[in-house]
């Protein structure tokens, strides 16, 4: 399994990771070698095998519809890089 620079770039956009040119090649190589390794799974016939998405035989875990006090706003904003008017401030969207 090899992976192209173009695919690396596409995945990096999806993952919101800015890659430098030299990194792209490194990722292509590393991802390629891991993907080649995981191709081993294709040796197995999994026809009819139910995917295991939850290991515990547990269902319907609920909480009551009860309101508890919210966090203190100062506390919740304390770790924010930039705050204005009690809100997180972010650069322009477009």
């Amino acid at each position: 399994m090899t992976i192209s620079i173009k695919e690396v770039e596409h995945v990096a956009v999806l993952a919101r990771l800015q890659l430098k040119e030299n990194e792209k090649e490194k990722y292509a190589r590393h991802m390629g070698s891991v993907l080649q390794y995981v191709d081993k799974l294709n040796q197995l016939d999994t026809e009819g095998v139910e995917p295991l998405d939850h290991i515990l035989p547990v269902f319907n875990v609920f909480r009551e519809d009860q309101v508890k006090p919210a966090s203190n706003r100062e506390e919740i904003l304390a770790n924010a890089p930039l705050v204005e008017a009690g809100q997180y401030k972010v650069p322009k969207i477009i």
Binding site: E84, A85, G86, Q87, Y88, K89, V90, P91, K92, I93, I94
Partner: peptide, 12 residues
């Protein structure tokens, strides 16, 4: 507007 704003604020 979303295209002219210099920044945006997030209220959760």
């Amino acid at each position: 507007t979303i295209s002219s704003t210099p920044f945006s604020l997030v209220d959760l």
